[in-house]
Design a protein around this nucleic acid. Structure first.
Length: 291
DNA sequence: CTCCAGGTCGTTG
DNA sequence: CAACGACATGGA
Protein backbone atom coordinates (compact mmCIF):
# COMPACT_ATOMS: atom_id res chain seq x y z
CA UNK A 1 0.00 0.00 0.00
CA UNK A 2 1.42 3.33 -1.13
CA UNK A 3 0.02 6.66 0.09
CA UNK A 4 0.75 9.90 -1.76
CA UNK A 5 -0.58 13.43 -1.60
CA UNK A 6 -1.28 14.75 -5.10
CA UNK A 7 -3.03 18.10 -5.73
CA UNK A 8 -4.89 18.15 -2.39
CA UNK A 9 -5.97 14.55 -2.86
CA UNK A 10 -4.69 11.46 -1.12
CA UNK A 11 -4.02 8.66 -3.54
CA UNK A 12 -3.64 5.21 -2.05
CA UNK A 13 -2.39 2.62 -4.50
CA UNK A 14 -1.60 -1.09 -4.33
CA UNK A 15 -4.40 -1.60 -1.81
CA UNK A 16 -5.17 -5.15 -0.81
CA UNK A 17 -8.07 -6.63 1.15
CA UNK A 18 -10.09 -3.42 0.97
CA UNK A 19 -13.19 -2.47 -0.98
CA UNK A 20 -14.93 0.85 -0.42
CA UNK A 21 -18.39 -0.28 -1.49
CA UNK A 22 -18.35 -3.49 0.55
CA UNK A 23 -17.08 -1.61 3.58
CA UNK A 24 -19.71 1.14 3.44
CA UNK A 25 -22.66 -0.98 2.32
CA UNK A 26 -22.33 -3.78 4.88
CA UNK A 27 -24.58 -2.15 7.47
CA UNK A 28 -22.00 -0.79 9.89
CA UNK A 29 -22.48 2.87 8.93
CA UNK A 30 -25.37 4.85 7.51
CA UNK A 31 -24.25 8.36 6.66
CA UNK A 32 -23.08 8.18 3.07
CA UNK A 33 -24.46 8.58 -0.43
CA UNK A 34 -23.41 6.69 -3.49
CA UNK A 35 -22.44 9.43 -5.94
CA UNK A 36 -21.53 7.14 -8.80
CA UNK A 37 -20.15 3.66 -9.36
CA UNK A 38 -17.41 3.14 -6.74
CA UNK A 39 -17.60 6.72 -5.51
CA UNK A 40 -19.19 7.92 -2.28
CA UNK A 41 -19.97 11.08 -0.36
CA UNK A 42 -19.18 10.14 3.22
CA UNK A 43 -20.12 11.94 6.43
CA UNK A 44 -17.99 10.66 9.30
CA UNK A 45 -15.85 11.84 12.20
CA UNK A 46 -17.51 15.26 12.05
CA UNK A 47 -16.30 15.71 8.48
CA UNK A 48 -17.14 15.23 4.84
CA UNK A 49 -15.13 13.08 2.44
CA UNK A 50 -15.51 12.20 -1.22
CA UNK A 51 -13.85 8.85 -1.90
CA UNK A 52 -13.50 6.86 -5.09
CA UNK A 53 -12.01 3.44 -5.67
CA UNK A 54 -10.73 2.08 -8.96
CA UNK A 55 -9.43 -1.45 -8.57
CA UNK A 56 -6.58 -1.30 -6.08
CA UNK A 57 -6.43 2.49 -5.98
CA UNK A 58 -8.45 4.63 -3.57
CA UNK A 59 -8.61 8.40 -3.93
CA UNK A 60 -9.66 10.58 -1.02
CA UNK A 61 -10.46 14.00 -2.47
CA UNK A 62 -9.72 17.42 -1.03
CA UNK A 63 -7.80 16.24 1.97
CA UNK A 64 -4.21 16.34 3.14
CA UNK A 65 -1.58 13.97 4.43
CA UNK A 66 -2.13 15.49 7.89
CA UNK A 67 -5.84 14.77 7.82
CA UNK A 68 -5.21 11.33 6.37
CA UNK A 69 -2.77 10.46 9.14
CA UNK A 70 -4.96 11.83 11.92
CA UNK A 71 -8.42 10.78 10.69
CA UNK A 72 -8.94 8.65 7.58
CA UNK A 73 -6.16 6.12 8.06
CA UNK A 74 -7.73 5.08 11.36
CA UNK A 75 -11.32 5.46 10.14
CA UNK A 76 -10.77 3.00 7.30
CA UNK A 77 -8.64 0.78 9.56
CA UNK A 78 -5.76 0.62 7.10
CA UNK A 79 -3.24 -0.49 9.73
CA UNK A 80 -4.91 -3.83 10.39
CA UNK A 81 -3.85 -7.00 8.58
CA UNK A 82 -7.15 -8.26 7.16
CA UNK A 83 -5.52 -11.04 5.15
CA UNK A 84 -4.40 -12.54 8.42
CA UNK A 85 -7.78 -12.03 10.10
CA UNK A 86 -9.63 -13.70 7.22
CA UNK A 87 -7.22 -16.62 7.23
CA UNK A 88 -7.71 -17.15 10.96
CA UNK A 89 -11.51 -17.02 10.70
CA UNK A 90 -11.46 -19.59 7.89
CA UNK A 91 -9.24 -21.77 10.07
CA UNK A 92 -11.95 -21.65 12.74
CA UNK A 93 -14.74 -22.50 10.30
CA UNK A 94 -13.96 -23.60 6.75
CA UNK A 95 -17.58 -22.94 5.70
CA UNK A 96 -16.97 -19.20 5.94
CA UNK A 97 -14.37 -19.35 3.16
CA UNK A 98 -16.75 -18.55 0.28
CA UNK A 99 -18.53 -15.71 2.12
CA UNK A 100 -15.25 -14.14 3.11
CA UNK A 101 -13.91 -14.43 -0.41
CA UNK A 102 -17.03 -12.81 -1.84
CA UNK A 103 -16.84 -9.96 0.66
CA UNK A 104 -13.11 -9.91 0.88
CA UNK A 105 -12.83 -6.12 1.02
CA UNK A 106 -14.80 -5.41 4.17
CA UNK A 107 -13.03 -3.44 6.88
CA UNK A 108 -14.51 -2.67 10.28
CA UNK A 109 -14.60 1.13 10.29
CA UNK A 110 -13.30 2.89 13.38
CA UNK A 111 -16.22 5.27 13.66
CA UNK A 112 -16.77 8.12 16.05
CA UNK A 113 -18.19 6.93 19.36
CA UNK A 114 -20.87 9.59 19.75
CA UNK A 115 -22.03 9.40 16.12
CA UNK A 116 -22.20 5.61 16.35
CA UNK A 117 -24.18 5.68 19.59
CA UNK A 118 -26.80 8.08 18.21
CA UNK A 119 -27.02 6.19 14.90
CA UNK A 120 -27.54 2.78 16.45
CA UNK A 121 -30.13 4.04 18.92
CA UNK A 122 -32.05 5.16 15.83
CA UNK A 123 -31.43 1.81 14.13
CA UNK A 124 -33.60 -0.26 16.42
CA UNK A 125 -36.61 -1.83 14.74
CA UNK A 126 -35.97 0.07 11.51
CA UNK A 127 -34.72 -0.91 8.08
CA UNK A 128 -31.42 0.46 6.80
CA UNK A 129 -32.91 2.95 4.27
CA UNK A 130 -35.07 4.42 7.04
CA UNK A 131 -32.20 4.64 9.49
CA UNK A 132 -30.32 6.63 6.87
CA UNK A 133 -33.30 8.91 6.35
CA UNK A 134 -33.72 9.74 10.04
CA UNK A 135 -29.99 10.48 10.36
CA UNK A 136 -30.24 12.71 7.31
CA UNK A 137 -33.27 14.51 8.78
CA UNK A 138 -31.47 15.14 12.05
CA UNK A 139 -28.34 16.30 10.23
CA UNK A 140 -30.31 18.66 8.02
CA UNK A 141 -32.04 20.10 11.08
CA UNK A 142 -29.02 20.51 13.37
CA UNK A 143 -25.83 19.90 11.40
CA UNK A 144 -23.64 22.24 9.42
CA UNK A 145 -24.32 22.54 5.70
CA UNK A 146 -21.51 21.61 3.33
CA UNK A 147 -21.17 21.19 -0.41
CA UNK A 148 -20.25 17.83 -1.85
CA UNK A 149 -17.51 17.37 -4.41
CA UNK A 150 -20.19 17.72 -7.10
CA UNK A 151 -21.67 20.82 -5.52
CA UNK A 152 -24.78 19.32 -3.91
CA UNK A 153 -25.95 20.37 -0.45
CA UNK A 154 -25.25 17.91 2.32
CA UNK A 155 -25.18 18.19 6.10
CA UNK A 156 -22.59 17.06 8.60
CA UNK A 157 -23.70 14.88 11.48
CA UNK A 158 -24.44 17.45 14.21
CA UNK A 159 -21.92 17.72 17.02
CA UNK A 160 -23.03 17.08 20.59
CA UNK A 161 -22.98 20.85 21.13
CA UNK A 162 -25.24 21.42 18.14
CA UNK A 163 -27.71 18.77 19.20
CA UNK A 164 -27.74 19.47 22.93
CA UNK A 165 -30.73 21.80 22.86
CA UNK A 166 -32.87 19.50 20.70
CA UNK A 167 -36.17 18.39 22.21
CA UNK A 168 -38.07 15.14 21.99
CA UNK A 169 -40.48 16.88 19.62
CA UNK A 170 -37.57 17.90 17.38
CA UNK A 171 -36.49 14.29 17.03
CA UNK A 172 -40.06 13.14 16.44
CA UNK A 173 -40.36 15.64 13.61
CA UNK A 174 -37.20 14.02 12.20
CA UNK A 175 -39.19 10.75 12.16
CA UNK A 176 -37.30 9.14 15.03
CA UNK A 177 -40.65 7.99 16.44
CA UNK A 178 -40.52 6.34 19.87
CA UNK A 179 -36.71 6.52 19.77
CA UNK A 180 -36.86 10.29 20.30
CA UNK A 181 -36.92 9.95 24.08
CA UNK A 182 -33.99 7.55 23.91
CA UNK A 183 -31.95 10.10 21.98
CA UNK A 184 -32.75 12.70 24.64
CA UNK A 185 -31.50 10.37 27.38
CA UNK A 186 -28.31 9.54 25.46
CA UNK A 187 -27.55 13.21 24.84
CA UNK A 188 -28.17 14.03 28.49
CA UNK A 189 -25.82 11.27 29.68
CA UNK A 190 -23.14 12.31 27.20
CA UNK A 191 -23.47 15.95 28.21
CA UNK A 192 -23.24 15.34 31.95
CA UNK A 193 -20.41 12.84 31.35
CA UNK A 194 -22.18 9.94 33.05
CA UNK A 195 -21.31 8.29 29.74
CA UNK A 196 -17.86 9.52 28.76
CA UNK A 197 -15.74 8.04 25.99
CA UNK A 198 -12.43 8.80 27.71
CA UNK A 199 -13.49 6.89 30.82
CA UNK A 200 -14.26 3.79 28.74
CA UNK A 201 -10.70 3.29 27.49
CA UNK A 202 -9.32 1.18 30.34
CA UNK A 203 -12.53 -0.67 31.06
CA UNK A 204 -13.23 -4.27 30.13
CA UNK A 205 -15.83 -5.05 27.47
CA UNK A 206 -18.28 -6.11 30.18
CA UNK A 207 -17.83 -2.81 32.04
CA UNK A 208 -18.29 -0.76 28.86
CA UNK A 209 -21.39 -2.78 28.05
CA UNK A 210 -22.88 -1.98 31.48
CA UNK A 211 -22.26 1.74 31.04
CA UNK A 212 -23.86 1.75 27.59
CA UNK A 213 -27.02 -0.11 28.58
CA UNK A 214 -27.58 2.45 31.34
CA UNK A 215 -28.84 4.66 28.50
CA UNK A 216 -32.56 4.28 27.85
CA UNK A 217 -33.13 2.56 24.53
CA UNK A 218 -29.71 0.91 24.53
CA UNK A 219 -29.98 -2.83 25.01
CA UNK A 220 -27.54 -5.63 24.39
CA UNK A 221 -27.62 -5.39 20.60
CA UNK A 222 -27.18 -1.62 20.30
CA UNK A 223 -24.47 -1.67 22.98
CA UNK A 224 -22.62 -4.39 21.04
CA UNK A 225 -22.82 -2.39 17.83
CA UNK A 226 -21.54 0.74 19.53
CA UNK A 227 -18.69 -1.26 21.04
CA UNK A 228 -17.75 -2.85 17.74
CA UNK A 229 -18.23 0.07 15.36
CA UNK A 230 -17.75 3.05 17.68
CA UNK A 231 -15.10 1.80 20.08
CA UNK A 232 -13.39 -0.83 17.92
CA UNK A 233 -14.00 -3.51 20.53
CA UNK A 234 -13.69 -6.32 18.00
CA UNK A 235 -14.54 -9.00 20.55
CA UNK A 236 -18.16 -7.79 20.43
CA UNK A 237 -20.70 -9.88 18.53
CA UNK A 238 -24.01 -8.05 17.92
CA UNK A 239 -26.94 -10.40 17.36
CA UNK A 240 -29.89 -8.95 15.48
CA UNK A 241 -32.67 -10.63 13.52
CA UNK A 242 -30.33 -11.38 10.62
CA UNK A 243 -27.56 -12.76 12.81
CA UNK A 244 -30.09 -14.87 14.68
CA UNK A 245 -31.29 -16.40 11.41
CA UNK A 246 -27.86 -17.06 9.95
CA UNK A 247 -26.47 -18.49 13.19
CA UNK A 248 -29.48 -20.76 13.64
CA UNK A 249 -29.08 -21.85 10.03
CA UNK A 250 -25.36 -22.54 10.31
CA UNK A 251 -24.86 -23.78 13.86
CA UNK A 252 -28.02 -24.53 15.79
CA UNK A 253 -30.68 -25.80 13.40
CA UNK A 254 -33.46 -24.59 15.69
CA UNK A 255 -34.85 -21.51 17.40
CA UNK A 256 -32.14 -20.26 19.74
CA UNK A 257 -32.03 -17.33 22.13
CA UNK A 258 -29.87 -14.35 21.19
CA UNK A 259 -27.81 -14.56 24.39
CA UNK A 260 -26.99 -18.19 23.67
CA UNK A 261 -25.97 -17.32 20.11
CA UNK A 262 -23.80 -14.44 21.30
CA UNK A 263 -21.87 -16.44 23.88
CA UNK A 264 -21.46 -19.38 21.52
CA UNK A 265 -20.02 -17.08 18.85
CA UNK A 266 -17.69 -15.26 21.23
CA UNK A 267 -16.40 -18.58 22.48
CA UNK A 268 -15.88 -19.79 18.92
CA UNK A 269 -14.34 -16.69 17.32
CA UNK A 270 -12.78 -15.12 20.42
CA UNK A 271 -10.95 -11.85 19.61
CA UNK A 272 -12.09 -12.19 15.97
CA UNK A 273 -15.81 -12.17 16.87
CA UNK A 274 -16.53 -8.70 15.52
CA UNK A 275 -14.96 -9.40 12.15
CA UNK A 276 -16.65 -12.81 11.90
CA UNK A 277 -19.97 -11.21 12.76
CA UNK A 278 -19.67 -8.81 9.84
CA UNK A 279 -18.97 -11.54 7.28
CA UNK A 280 -21.82 -13.63 8.67
CA UNK A 281 -24.16 -10.65 8.67
CA UNK A 282 -23.57 -9.82 5.03
CA UNK A 283 -23.90 -13.49 4.11
CA UNK A 284 -27.23 -13.84 5.86
CA UNK A 285 -28.54 -10.63 4.38
CA UNK A 286 -27.38 -11.20 0.82
CA UNK A 287 -28.62 -14.77 0.74
CA UNK A 288 -31.74 -13.84 2.72
CA UNK A 289 -31.15 -16.83 4.95
CA UNK A 290 -34.30 -17.88 6.74
CA UNK A 291 -36.55 -15.50 4.81
C1' DC B 1 -55.51 -5.06 4.83
C1' DT B 2 -51.42 -7.32 7.60
C1' DC B 3 -46.68 -8.04 8.65
C1' DC B 4 -42.09 -6.67 9.69
C1' DA B 5 -37.83 -3.87 10.28
C1' DG B 6 -29.56 -4.43 12.31
C1' DG B 7 -34.79 -3.83 19.52
C1' DT B 8 -35.95 -2.27 23.98
C1' DC B 9 -39.07 -1.19 27.64
C1' DG B 10 -42.50 -2.06 31.03
C1' DT B 11 -45.69 -5.29 32.62
C1' DT B 12 -47.23 -10.01 33.77
C1' DG B 13 -46.95 -14.78 35.01
C1' DC C 1 -36.14 -14.90 35.17
C1' DA C 2 -39.17 -15.69 30.64
C1' DA C 3 -42.79 -14.25 27.81
C1' DC C 4 -45.34 -10.70 25.51
C1' DG C 5 -47.46 -6.45 23.75
C1' DA C 6 -46.43 -1.60 22.76
C1' DC C 7 -43.91 1.51 20.43
C1' DA C 8 -43.55 5.32 15.32
C1' DT C 9 -43.00 4.96 10.71
C1' DG C 10 -42.79 3.28 6.10
C1' DG C 11 -42.30 -0.37 2.70
C1' DA C 12 -43.52 -5.03 0.95
Amino acid sequence: MIVKEIDNNIVISKLSDFNLEETLECGQCFDFIKAEENAYDIIACGRYLFAEQKEDTLILYDTSMDEYESVWKDYFDFETDYADIKRRIIDIDERLKSVIEENSGIHILRQDFYETLISFIISQNKQIPQIKQVIRNISERFGREILTKKGAKMYLFPTLEEIKAATEEDFKSCKAGFRAKYLIDAIKKLSDKSVCEEKLFDMTDAEVHDILVSIKGVGDKVASCVMLFGLYRVGAFPVDVWMKRIMEYMYFGEDTKKEVIESYAKDKFKELSGYAQQYLFIYGKNERIGR
